[in-house]
Computed example of a mutant assay.
Amino acid sequence: MFIITLTYIKPLETIDALIPEHRAFLTRHYANGTFLFSGPKIPRNGGIIIATGESREAMEAVISEDPFHREQAAKYEIVEFTPAMTAEALNDFCTA
């Protein structure tokens, strides 16, 4: 699993103009099961995506499709982890 942190590096006006395209990107990856949770940080200086995927390389390929990435409007940090414990409702994602 992956925690993807986005930090905006362009003004919010640029971010806001890209939001419709970014949401379409998110919707595609929710539909194919890659994205599990997402939302803006507070304060609104970026966002968080919780995702599942086969490898870091595969996740980097997914992120390269994001319009924020294409327009160099955000920088990304991808943290891979193996869930060892989870709330009961999320047991399908735990590998321990």
Rank of each mutant, 00 (worst) to 15 (best):
F25M: 09
L6R: 03
Y30G: 03
V79G: 02
I19R: 09
E77I: 11
A31F: 10
L18R: 00
L6C: 11
R28K: 14
S64Y: 05
S38G: 02
E65V: 04
T7Q: 06
E54C: 04
E21K: 14
S55C: 03
G39K: 08
I48S: 05
K75C: 08
K75F: 02
A61C: 06
G39Q: 04
P40H: 04
K41I: 07
Y30Q: 10
I42M: 10
D66C: 07
E21R: 13
L6D: 12
I78A: 05
H69S: 06
R70Q: 12
E71W: 00
I78P: 06
T14G: 02
T5C: 03
R70L: 15
I4D: 02
E54V: 13
P40G: 08
R44V: 00
R56P: 02
E21I: 09
F81H: 08
Q72I: 06
F37R: 05
N45H: 07
N45C: 03
P20H: 05
S55P: 03
L36I: 14
Y8E: 01
T82I: 09
G33I: 04
P43C: 01
R28W: 10
A17R: 11
A73P: 04
G39Y: 05
N32I: 10
S38I: 07
T34N: 13
G33V: 05
R28E: 15
I48N: 07
A58M: 01
A61Y: 08
H69D: 00
I49M: 13
R23W: 02
T34G: 00
R28G: 12
V79L: 14
I9F: 05
F81P: 09
I42H: 14
A17V: 02
V62S: 04
V79N: 11
Q72T: 14
R56N: 09
D16F: 07
L26F: 14
R56F: 09
L36P: 08
L26Q: 11
F37T: 13
I49A: 10
A61P: 07
I9W: 09
I50A: 03
I50W: 00
E71Y: 03
T82G: 06
A17W: 00
P40S: 07
E13T: 13
P20G: 03
E13I: 15
G47S: 07
T34I: 12
S64E: 15
L26V: 15
A24S: 13
S38T: 12
Q72W: 00
P11G: 12
A73D: 00
H69N: 08
F25N: 13
I42F: 11
I4M: 10
T27Y: 08
T14R: 14
A24N: 14
D16K: 15
T34R: 06
A58C: 01
I19P: 01
M59D: 11
Y8W: 01
F37A: 13
A61Q: 14
F81N: 09
E54R: 11
A61T: 10
V62T: 07
I48Q: 03
A73H: 02
T52Q: 11
A73L: 01
D66Y: 05
V62H: 02
R23D: 10
P67H: 02
R56Q: 10
H22I: 04
T5G: 06
G47W: 00
K10C: 12
E60Q: 15
T82H: 14
V62D: 06
E13L: 15
T34Q: 08
P67R: 02
I4Q: 04
A73R: 08
A74G: 11
G39R: 07
